[in-house]
Design a protein around this nucleic acid. Structure first.
Lengths: 228, 228
DNA sequence: TCGGTTTTGTTCTCACGTTCACAAACTCCT
DNA sequence: AGGAGTTTGTGAACGTGAGAACAAAACCGA
């Protein structure tokens, strides 16, 4: 036991924050497999990172390991979950119930990882009679009421690009301060509001870039310059 | 005009590569709006980055701007597309036609950005009679044939976590060298194969972390240490 | 109790990415 | 033709992140 029982809330580097959920997932798997203890080397293997990096990441949370032994899986798992803030459920609204919205609403990974979809919203009245994943689709104008009633802080945008900024503005006005944006557009939001984006085609384009360099796949003569 | 007409193929930093698709998207929008020229400041605004960073990013591609004027939208767009390698279509296979696979197959952003879904594969015979987005779902065992026939280099995994590693192994064996993984698991692949992952719940967890620090939402007393 | 073994936590160094700041280069107007 | 105004491209300073390496701290067996 260290001299001070409470962990100090140092600020954690962004790169580390982005890896904590990966560690959390691996620890959950280990727990399910009945593993009680693991070393940084084992956990690093399971998460695909360098063991030195893993130890440094964990050191930002506190000293939760035992030298010569490793980490208590259940204990470490709880500490990471607490740091991320997923020991209790976060209510989430999803706006835009097209193909992607459907998939997100049905995605079991949200529920099992500390998120609860409390509402599905769509501007199209045609969709407002559907029930997706046990939640019925409601009009977009119900946003403010739902945010206030359920204490929603996180919104997910799965609309077409053209609607995304308007949706974001309404979300911010309603009190939402964290937005996960799947629409292929840049959102502008006031300070204090976090936006993370997931763009499916950007990831493919990055792969294409590297793929192009791998294969000597004649990389298109760069002599079209004068032609334009 | 610069003295050398051809762009030198310097290697581009990863961080820059990840932003090129964003610039490309903005330039496409500007083209559609009939804008012929734009400054780094305007393009930076449209893409949500710093204008100095934008200029440095573009400088890795070559000197395609004109001082005192800005960039020719169509020309810069073509140059970026060429660098990324999306001037011609890339054939792509999607494995796992559940909710997410459906959404991906229907996502028009792939088609419009240089990717063509040539096959949808699923191990479940129940799904093999469906037609999604004009492409019929075929047995997973057809993978090798399709990869060979269509020259597929990029595969998308949208299966449950348990199946993802097996699918990746088969993809690699079939000749695929770039994988976009939506399954919440770490894939291990040989050197020379690129994997990018998209984990929907990780993004939410990162938002939750920051959200937790914003609100003084009693952050769960860290005195459970002795209790575990 | 004590040496040997294991594994963590941390320090140090290097590489990468971001931002600033400014000279070079181009246009426009008189 | 030339000066004023604009905007790019880049060198230099700064900050963040990654990896190697090792001392400190635990366990184990005799």
């Amino acid at each position: 036991m260290t001299s001070r029982p409470s962990a100090e809330p140092r600020d954690i580097p962004e790169a580390t924050v982005a890896r904590l959920p990966v560690y959390l997932r691996a620890l959950t798997t280990l727990t399910e497999d009945g593993v009680a203890t693991c070393s940084s080397e084992e956990l690093a293997q399971a998460t695909g990172v360098n063991s030195a990096k893993l130890r440094k990441d964990l050191s930002y949370l506190g000293s939760y390991g035992t030298r010569g032994v490793g980490y208590d899986v259940a204990y470490l798992r709880y500490q990471i979950a607490r740091q991320i803030g997923v020991t209790q459920d976060w209510p989430v609204v999803i706006v835009g119930i097209g193909n992607l919205g459907h998939a997100l609403a049905n995605y079991s990974g949200f529920r099992s990882r500390g998120f609860r979809v409390v509402a599905l919203l769509d501007a199209d009245p045609q969709r407002q009679h559907e029930v997706v994943a046990g939640v019925d689709v409601r009009p977009f104008d119900d946003l403010e009421t739902i945010v206030a009633d359920c204490g929603v802080a996180i919104g997910v945008i799965a609309t077409p690009a053209g609607a995304a900024q308007d949706v974001a503005d309404r979300m911010v006005a309603a009190g939402i301060r964290s937005i996960l944006n799947f629409a292929p557009t840049v959102l502008s939001v006031p300070d204090g509001v976090d936006v993370r984006k997931v763009d499916l085609s950007i990831e493919l384009q990055i792969l294409a870039y590297h793929e192009q360099r791998k294969s000597p796949h004649l990389p298109l003569t760069p002599i079209e310059e004068a032609a334009i």
